[in-house]
């Protein structure tokens, strides 16, 4: 008896969510750019998940993100060249689809495995920075007064530093590992979330339903988490989704400047481009070895574009109360 009731409750509870999701899907369908953004991200998601299938690591026992090398020649070979390394041939590789980079690292392999790394970088940095930003922003916005002053001046100090340079300094100080790079980016990134959420909280704080919640006896924590945050978070989510792409670009920029946490030959798009620095020197080399840096570049570009389009789509979709004319 009880189970049947509970099931009915569950279905009834899901009904409004289903209704809202339907409205959301309808809106996504109406905007072709949003569909494009979502498709791009689904594509990269599949790449990340199916990497072991699409590009099986030939050398067992090795870190799968280390790009396998086919030979010892220093100059890159163009797309279409045959694979010579017998271990790789056994694993199923016949041709280098995108060619090879310096030291014969397979570009195809690198790009495929780079997807999961890009996701990891994006989510980790944005995720942690978002949490820090939310906590500080909520405290500053809700309590105001001296807490607000102190937190905001602290974030102002961090804002005063040029972001990339501060990140470089931190990485150099902490040591060049991928985790340190991400830590540095988190430390540079969280203040912007603080600012955005604080502004939204200041706006939502004044709404009647917040006062009504206090009239009912809700504790401060409950008011913030249950009443203010769900209404204040939309702009932050939009910024966050746009930022995931920006993080990947920043890591790529840092790699290019030599401050990479990832060793050479690793399947990270930014690292691959950095690795190809020698071949970007002008003239004949630029056009002859274009595949070494252009192809990873296209992957980064498309990945960031997908997140940007998704961020725009979020802006139009997320709030169930906004009705478009």
């Amino acid at each position: 008896m009880k189970i049947r009731d509970r099931l009915r409750e569950f279905k009834a509870g899901m009904a409004p969510t289903i209704r809202e999701s339907r409205v959301m899907l309808l809106r996504i369908k109406k905007s072709p750019l949003s569909i494009l953004g979502v498709s791009i991200l689904i594509f990269f998601g599949l790449l990340a998940v199916l990497a072991p299938v699409l590009a099986p690591p030939p050398f067992k026992g090795q870190d799968p993100w280390r790009i396998p090398k086919d030979g010892w020649m220093p100059t890159p070979r163009p797309p279409g060249t045959a694979v010579t390394e017998p271990v790789m041939v056994k694993a199923g590789y016949t041709t280098h689809i995108f060619g090879t980079a310096q030291d014969q690292t397979d570009i195809f392999y690198g790009c495929i495995w780079g997807a999961s790394l890009a996701f990891r970088e994006g989510f980790q940095v944005v995720g942690v920075a978002l949490i820090i930003g939310l906590v500080t922003g909520c405290l500053a916005g809700y309590y105001g007064g001296i807490i607000d002053e102190l937190l905001m001046r602290f974030t102002d100090i961090i804002f005063a530093f040029p972001a990339l340079i501060l990140a470089m300094a931190l990485v150099t100080a902490l040591g060049k590992t991928l985790d340190n790079v991400m830590l540095a980016l988190i430390l540079v990134w969280w203040p912007s979330y603080t600012r955005v959420i604080r502004g939204e909280i200041l706006r939502v704080k004044q709404e009647d339903y917040v006062e009504a919640a206090k009239a009912v006896g809700c504790s401060d924590l409950r008011v913030i988490v249950r009443h203010i945050l769900p209404n204040a978070i939309y702009p932050v989510l939009i910024v966050a989704s746009l930022d995931i792409g920006a993080v990947v670009l920043s890591v790529a920029a840092l790699s290019f400047l030599g401050i990479s946490g990832v060793p050479a030959g690793y399947a990270d798009w930014g690292q691959m481009i950095s690795y190809a620095q020698a071949w970007i020197a002008g003239g004949a080399t630029l056009t002859k070895y274009w595949y070494v840096f252009t192809i990873p570049g296209i992957f980064i570009f498309t990945f960031v574009l997908g997140w940007n389009l998704l961020g725009d789509a979020f802006r139009d979709i997320l709030d169930p109360t906004i009705r478009r004319r």
């Binding site: 009647d208 339903y209 006062e211 009504a212 919640a213 009239a215 006896g217 009443h227 209404n231 169930p320």
Partner: peptide, 26 residues
């Protein structure tokens, strides 16, 4: 207390059952 404007006095992201149930819960 009952407020003047019902559009702003109810949390737009909460279901009716939660809005009315919250005082009991709290």
């Amino acid at each position: 207390i009952v407020y003047q404007d019902p559009t702003t006095s109810l949390n737009p992201r909460m279901l009716v059952k939660d809005i009315v149930g919250e005082p009991l819960k709290v």
